[in-house]
Design a protein around this nucleic acid. Structure first.
Length: 511
RNA sequence: GGCGGCGUAGCUCAGCGGUAGAGCAGGGGAAUCAUAAUCCCUUGGUCGGUGGUUCAAAUCCGCCCGCCGCUACCA
């Protein structure tokens, strides 16, 4: 039986239009999902939209439509974003689906049965004008020693009835879980943050609201809807079939990886495992928090007007180069800077020159000097063996690196082999061999074809369309494109199609 | 304020006790199969500052300077 792999993006809040940040998270998951499939795993890759809450309720009201119609519309834009980015998700979940309400209510009941939910009061400084609660620390001094919201609005101490989750009781068990699973939170710097936070003591968590209606009703208390934590996080088990633990998809739980942005780290690494443990459900195996993209050195924001829509980016540079750039440019987990110049440089240097040109020169030599037929494997020299060994080592290297979400180094390892390929072809100079030793020339070209096949196979998750073209040109049959197939050499004598460039150079308009 | 991290070549970063590294950028040369792509060689750093531990410190410890993250109800 195939091993399983369950990977999730966060569900995206429908208060926002999809931008490069959403695309980035989803893309990272897509590459891992594709890699795992390529490596023989049974994969479930989930993404979706988060559609409840006061903001949505109000946005719908402002738009003059009911919340459901509003979310129907915005949710579609996230499906479109996935399509534009070439995302291979197996499922898409919306929190307004009936199955999700059932899952939330079932989970709630479990927590209640476990004695971890109680009715209390949510207190805080509330600004009526802003319709928002503020922290003590956020307040600014007002006239006569009074306090004001950071927006300048008057605040009052308000107590609202709310259900609470007994998070305070889970501190030790959470710490024990982190201890027993040192890679539960990555990167390590984020793990340290969470550890520090939890060690500092946990307060009970307000998990319901009576102040708005657009949410999942609390069982047996129609005045309350569930607050964001319980509602949104639960999507990950809803999609696996919860509460039906005999469901087809339940075999995927616990999730192998929740990919999240660094802003929602705590919800996934503190609240979520506590909820699950309280309900007697296994926590996820890993949460990875990635960083943000700056745009040409500036924070991405609507007010600056530098928000990048995935659709525009792909239209200008093409899908695969964009996918490649986002994962290649920055050590995954760090913040990155999205520079147009850097993207073009990666396209031209690494895709067009290093990889594209290596394939093109190798394949043209085969086309011209081997009658367009893949040579059989021949006798190997020491240098042949060395480069073939470097290529053969890649699958295991990538498994190890990608199991820690290290896209940046994984791609660097592939590029080391590509660069070695260019060095190899230069030293072997098959264009000279064709005048002196045709047999050796054929052997050299076959070695190059084998190296390219390995590289193209392994890069499929990052650049599916381009690598499919390259594998076509290398004569690799569709059913021999996974990692296991690399162990079986292609027979010599396959007729190859005429080579055609896979990565054209990007030339600036008017340059 | 508290806790944590970072500061290494022009740029992005790796190294984390044993004579300073990679990619890109810059300079020189070779080759001409190829998307004028490639290959080889090379310039360049008192590893933020300072004091200490050690036979030996980017690498460990103290202090200082500068940046950054977290410090719970933002979906």
């Amino acid at each position: 039986m195939k091993p399983k792999y369950y990977i999730t993006t966060p569900i995206y809040y429908v208060n926002d239009q999809p931008h490069i940040g959403h695309a980035y998270t989803t893309l990272a998951c897509d590459v891992l999902a594709r890699f795992k499939r390529l490596d023989g795993y049974d994969v479930m890759f989930l993404t979706g939209t988060d559609e409840h809450g006061q903001k949505v309720e109000k946005a719908a009201e402002a738009a003059g439509i009911d919340p459901q119609s509003f979310t129907d519309k915005v949710s579609v834009t996230f499906r479109e974003m996935a399509e534009v980015m070439g995302i291979s998700n197996d499922a898409f979940i919306r929190t307004t689906e009936e199955r999700h309400k059932r899952a939330c209510q079932a989970l709630w009941q479990k927590l209640l049965d476990a004695g971890d939910i109680y009715l209390g009061g949510y207190e805080g400084w509330y600004a009526v004008r802003d319709e928002a609660f503020y922290d003590e620390g956020e307040l600014i001094p007002g006239p006569n020693g009074s306090k004001l919201a950071p927006t300048g609005a008057a605040v009052e101490w308000v107590v609202e009835p709310s259900y609470f989750f007994r998070l305070s009781a889970w501190q030790d068990r959470l710490l024990a879980y982190y201890e027993a699973n040192p890679d539960f939170i990555l990167p390590p710097s984020r793990r340290n943050e969470v550890l520090g936070f939890v060690k500092g003591g946990l307060k009970d968590l307000s998990v319901s609201r009576a102040s708005f209606k657009w949410g999942v009703p609390v069982p047996n208390d129609p005045d309350h809807v569930m607050y964001v934590w319980l509602d949104a996080l639960t999507n990950y088990i809803t999609a696996a079939g919860y509460p039906d633990e005999t469901a087809e998809n339940w075999r995927f739980w616990p999730a192998d990886l929740h990919m999240v942005g660094k802003d929602i780290l705590r919800f996934h690494t503190v609240f979520w495992p506590a909820f699950l443990m309280s309900a007697g459900i296994a926590p996820p195996k890993r949460v990875f928090a990635h960083g943000w993209w700056l745009i040409e050195g500036e924070k991405m924001s609507k007010s600056i007007g530098n928000v990048i829509a995935p659709r525009d980016l792909v239209a200008q540079f093409g899908l695969d180069p964009v996918r490649f750039f986002l994962l290649r440019e920055v050590p995954f987990g760090n913040d990155g800077d999205f520079q147009r110049k850097a993207l073009i440089s990666r396209m031209n240097v690494e895709l067009a020159n290093d990889l594209g040109n290596l394939a093109q020169r190798s394949l043209s030599l085969i086309a011209k000097n081997c009658a367009g037929v893949l040579p059989a494997q021949g006798a190997l020299t020491e240098e042949d063996t060395a480069i073939l060994a470097a290529a053969s080592a890649l699958p295991q290297t990538l498994r190890t690196l990608l199991d820690r979400q290290n896209f940046h180094e994984a791609l660097e390892e592939v590029w080391k082999v590509i660069r070695a390929g260019n060095g190899f072809i230069d030293r072997q100079a098959p264009w000279s061999l064709k005048k002196t030793d045709l047999a050796r020339m054929a052997d050299v070209l076959r070695v190059l074809a084998d190296v390219l096949r390995t590289v193209a196979t392994l890069l499929q998750p990052v650049m599916p369309t381009s690598m499919a073209k390259m594998l076509d040109q290398l004569g690799v049959p569709e059913d021999a494109r996974d990692i296991a197939a690399l162990a079986t050499p292609l027979p010599g004598g396959i007729a190859l199609p005429a080579p055609a460039g896979v990565f054209p150079r990007f030339v600036e308009e008017g340059a």
